[in-house]
C-alpha cells in the first residue's frame, strides 16, 4: 500500500513547551485512518503541520510522496481538509463560499459546485448567507469545500461536530464510499464509537507522543478475560487472586473481571463451580475503543 501521508520524526515546540515529539506515522492509500488523543495531545498541531499551516520544529511531513514544507503548492491542491470548526465566509452564500475556494486553484465547473452541494444536502440553502446556517449546515459546507476538488487525501478534524445522528450516519457512509473509491481519509475525532465503526487503523497520541498505532480489529480483540457475575464476588476475587493465572482478577462495578486457567471460558466455569461458586453468568470480555483509549492515555471514565 503506497503511503499517502507520512510523518518522519515530526516535532513542534512552542518555546520550551513541546507540542509534538518525534511523531512517525504512515497512512496508506484507501485507508480510513483514525487519529485519536485527548485535548492538547497534539492532534491539531500535527494536522496543521500536514497542511503547511505550521512549520515543524523538526522532522518532515510527506503528502503523496512530497515534502509539504517544500512542495506544498504541488501536493496540497490534492488534499481536502476540514480543520477544527469550519472556517467560512459568513457574509457570503454557501455557493459563493465554494466559488471563492474553487477559484484558488483556477476555478471549478459550476456543475461540480452543484454536485458537492447535493452531496452534503445543502442544495436548497445554497443561496442563503452562511451566517443563517445552523452548526450542522456549516459543518456540511466545510465538508463540501474539502471535497470540492475531488482530493486524493481528506484530512478531517472532528468532522461529526454539530451533525445530528442522521448526519453522522450519512457522513460515515460518505467516508466509506470515498475510501472505496481509493481516497485516503485521515480523521481526528473525539467520538470514539464513530472511529471504531469507520476506521481501519488508528493512531493514539498523548502529550505529543505516539502511544499506539494498530488496526482497530486488533485493538478490540479479546485479551482472554471474562466478565463474571457471581454471588460472594469479594470472596471469589480473593480466591482467584491466589491462583497463578488469576492475579489480574479485579472488580469492575459489580462484575468480576478475570482470566481463565486455560484461556477458555468453560475451564474458568469448571474452576469456580469446583470451588462452590457457580457463576450466574460468564462472558468473554471485549473492550471498546474508549476503554483502550482511556487505558493508553491514562484517562478516567
Amino acid at each position: 500500500m503506497d503511503a499517502v501521508l507520512e510523518t518522519h520524526d515530526l516535532s513542534k515546540s512552542y518555546g520550551s513547551r513541546p507540542a509534538v515529539k518525534k511523531l512517525n506515522l504512515s497512512v496508506g492509500q484507501g485507508e480510513i485512518f483514525g487519529f485519536l488523543g485527548p485535548n492538547g495531545a497534539g492532534k491539531t498541531t500535527t494536522i496543521r503541520m500536514a497542511l503547511g499551516l505550521i512549520r515543524p520544529s523538526g522532522g518532515t511531513v510527506e503528502v503523496l510522496g512530497q515534502d509539504v514544507a517544500r512542495h506544498g503548492d504541488r501536493v496540497l491542491p490534492r488534499v481536502g481538509a476540514l480543520v477544527e470548526s469550519p472556517a467560512l465566509y459568513l457574509y457570503m452564500s454557501g455557493r459563493d463560499n465554494l466559488k471563492a475556494v474553487g477559484d484558488l486553484l483556477g476555478g471549478v465547473p459550476s456543475r461540480r459546485i452543484d454536485e458537492v452541494l447535493e452531496l452534503v444536502g445543502l442544495s436548497g440553502r445554497q443561496r442563503d448567507r452562511v451566517k443563517t446556517y445552523s452548526m450542522g449546515m456549516k459543518q456540511r459546507l466545510g465538508l463540501a469545500i474539502a471535497l470540492l476538488h475531488d482530493p486524493d487525501l481528506l484530512i478531517l478534524d472532528e468532522p461529526a461536530n454539530g451533525l445530528d445522528p442522521a448526519g453522522i450516519v450519512e457522513m460515515r457512509d460518505l467516508l466509506r464510499g470515498l475510501a472505496a473509491e481509493g481516497k485516503t481519509v485521515f480523521v481526528s475525532s473525539h467520538v470514539l464509537a464513530e472511529v471504531q465503526q469507520i476506521c481501519g487503523r488508528v493512531a493514539i497520541i498523548n502529550l505529543g507522543e505516539l502511544v499506539k498505532v494498530a488496526r482497530v480489529a486488533e485493538l478490540l480483540e479479546s485479551q482472554g478475560e471474562f466478565v463474571v457475575l457471581v454471588e460472594n464476588a469479594e470472596a471469589v476475587l480473593e480466591l482467584l487472586q491466589r491462583q497463578d493465572w488469576g492475579r489480574s482478577a479485579r472488580m469492575d462495578g459489580g462484575s468480576l473481571i478475570c482470566s481463565s486457567p486455560t484461556g477458555r471460558g468453560r475451564d474458568l466455569a469448571r474452576f469456580l463451580a469446583g470451588a462452590g461458586h457457580w457463576p450466574d453468568s460468564l462472558a468473554e470480555r471485549h473492550q471498546d475503543l474508549e476503554d483502550i483509549f482511556l487505558s493508553l492515555t491514562g484517562g478516567d471514565r
Binding site: 503548492d73 504541488r74 491542491p77 490534492r78 484558488l104 486553484l105 483556477g106 471549478v108 465547473p109 456543475r111 461540480r112 454536485e115 447535493e118 452531496l119 452534503v120 444536502g121 456540511r140 465538508l143 471535497l147 470540492l148 476538488h149 475531488d150 448526519g167 450519512e170 457522513m171 457512509d173 460518505l174 466509506r176 464510499g177 470515498l178 473509491e181
Partner: peptide
C-alpha cells in the same frame, strides 16, 4: 449527505485536478 460519490461526480476527475494554485 449521499454516500454514492461516484455517481454524483459527473465532472471528470482530471478537470478538477490543478497543477497548483
Amino acid at each position: 449527505m449521499s454516500a454514492d460519490t461516484a455517481s454524483v461526480r459527473s465532472v471528470p476527475a482530471e478537470a478538477l485536478r490543478s497543477p497548483g494554485p
